[in-house]
Amino acid sequence: MKQVCNIFLIGPMGAGKTTIGRLLGKCLKMEFVDSDREIEQRTGVDIPMIFEYEGEAGFRRREADTIADLVRRVPIILATGGGSVLLQENRAALAANGFVVYLKCSVDRQVERTFKDSHRPLLQTENPRQRLEQLMATREPLYRSVADCTVDTGRYSSRQAVREILKAYNQAKRKTEKQDEDAQRRAG
Rank of each mutant, 00 (worst) to 15 (best):
G154S: 11
R120G: 14
Q110I: 11
G98T: 01
Q110Y: 07
M136K: 10
Y156P: 02
C149Y: 12
L166M: 11
E177Q: 09
V151F: 01
V107S: 03
Y156I: 01
Q124L: 11
P141V: 09
P141Q: 08
I165T: 04
F115P: 01
A168K: 12
Q179F: 09
C105F: 09
L132S: 08
N97P: 04
D117T: 08
E112V: 02
T125A: 02
A95Q: 05
N170R: 15
K167I: 00
V162C: 06
A147L: 06
I165W: 05
L135P: 01
V151D: 10
R155V: 04
S118L: 15
V162Q: 07
N127G: 00
Y143N: 10
V146F: 01
T153M: 14
L103V: 06
P128G: 07
P141I: 15
R129Y: 04
C149N: 12
R109N: 12
F115A: 15
N127M: 06
Y169R: 08
C149A: 09
K116S: 14
G154K: 07
D108F: 01
R113H: 13
A168C: 09
T138E: 15
R159N: 05
R113G: 10
A137G: 03
P128V: 10
A168S: 13
A96M: 05
V100T: 03
Y143C: 15
T138F: 08
A147T: 03
A95T: 06
N97H: 12
R139P: 06
R131N: 02
S145F: 14
E140K: 11
T138P: 06
L123H: 07
L142S: 13
Q130H: 05
E112Q: 10
E140M: 12
T153G: 07
R159P: 02
S118H: 13
Y143A: 14
Y169T: 00
N127I: 00
Q130P: 03
R129I: 06
V111T: 09
Q124A: 13
Y169P: 00
E164C: 03
R109V: 13
R174D: 02
T138C: 08
E164S: 02
D108G: 00
P141W: 06
H119L: 15
T150R: 07
R163N: 04
C105K: 00
D148P: 03
Q160R: 11
E164V: 00
R155C: 05
L135I: 06
V101S: 05
T153H: 12
R113Q: 13
Q110C: 14
T176G: 09
M136H: 12
G98M: 01
R129F: 03
S145R: 15
K178H: 09
A168P: 07
V146C: 06
Q160Y: 10
S145Y: 15
G98D: 02
V162G: 10
H119S: 15
K167Y: 06
L166H: 05
R174Y: 03
A168V: 03
L132M: 13
A172S: 07
V111F: 10
D152T: 11
